[in-house]
Design a protein around this nucleic acid. Sequence first.
DNA 1: CGATCAATTGAAATCGTTCAACTGACGTGG
DNA 2: CCACGTCAGTTGAACGATTTCAATTGATCG
Lengths: 217, 217
Amino acid sequence: MSADGGFLEDTRSWLLTRRRGQVIFDAGEPAGLMYRVESGCVRLQINNPDGERQIVVFLFPGDLFGYEITDRVCSAEAVSDSTLRCWPVQAFLKSPQEQPRVTIQLLEAAQRRFGEMAEHIDKITHLPAKERVLWFLNGLLTCPGLPREGGRIHLPMTRLDIADYLGVAPETLSRILAGLEEDGYLRRDGRRDLELSPEGFPNARSEASLKLKTAHR
Amino acid sequence: MSADGGFLEDTRSWLLTRRRGQVIFDAGEPAGLMYRVESGCVRLQINNPDGERQIVVFLFPGDLFGYEITDRVCSAEAVSDSTLRCWPVQAFLKSPQEQPRVTIQLLEAAQRRFGEMAEHIDKITHLPAKERVLWFLNGLLTCPGLPREGGRIHLPMTRLDIADYLGVAPETLSRILAGLEEDGYLRRDGRRDLELSPEGFPNARSEASLKLKTAHR
DNA sequence: CGATCAATTGAAATCGTTCAACTGACGTGG
DNA sequence: CCACGTCAGTTGAACGATTTCAATTGATCG
């Protein structure tokens, strides 16, 4: 998920720390800095007028964000205490030296994010709640930035965060996790720690897809 | 939605036509050309392994797409017969003359798209089916590239396309449209034409939001 | 003008939400 | 260091919106 090619390192930057829940920037604000997560976890989200929240993506160490050129397109908040490295975007865009290399990097990062969001929409609309949760958990397992020992995961985010990411009521998420624990696929340890079964998950879709649905166009 | 600053015009390009339903490119393919819709309508979509489809965005005249640098992150197909202007992306990225100006344009286009997709996810997860349809119809009304005379719209896409965009069953969409017509908010004329009421829509959210929900964090 | 398939309509089933109550994890102050 | 309070998280039960399956209509095209 990280996208620096070493260019960023050569450029003036500085560190910032944000505490759990702190706002990094809000949708609509004029952009200035771009960030890379050094430690912790950040969420990009939409805060809609009805007071509801849609978390668009969780960002982990190595991930770049906030490289808007004009205005912020969504809000960013620290999920857990985090340290961020930041650069003034304008510096890149104006420097004829750095500009080409960096903007292409950013363009690629943006494309990658686009693909991930498209997948996100797809999962939310086509998967039932349980399989969304499994998808999320699998994503955690293959997330390079997340501190992890074996199948043991320390979640930086709350249940409500996860629910708002998956488009599910927190109660539903709770029931699903309880069910997975019941069936031996994981063990909950406090609010933040998960022990995922090494044998992997029910893999519900491979069964379901045997039904050989014929949609497609 | 359009994002050219005149730079593109100076660069070698050519026209392409695609018939309704034709594939423009598929997810995973190596990228080569980038496109601008000149006439017609294009959809970007995810074709998931279960044969289901999620339409991510409809593109209209003026819209740029396909500016991936490496691989296609989703598929593109013509919704209606369309003409497309295309450029080799590499030509921009290699030319020191054009590169800076164009990549910044593309970066901005990508950011705009990001914001729209985030909103799309938000609508899908937080709005009930009827309001999703109203949101879509309102979007059509404020879409500069769509041929329109007053409140009369000629839809380039099928009901199934719309359903796959909104994350709703086609039957549900059908019932909702019937209901809106029943209530005098629109008139259906064949499969492709809609006459939207000039007084606008029920504006369901403003009533609903009087309930003053207190979510947010 | 007829065939075909998109679109519509009906009825039943279901998954997830909602409302409400409870539990217990975590941190704070004594 | 332990007791206590608070709020995140969990559990229960009922409701309801949307899906699903099935049948029908009707628009569009050859």
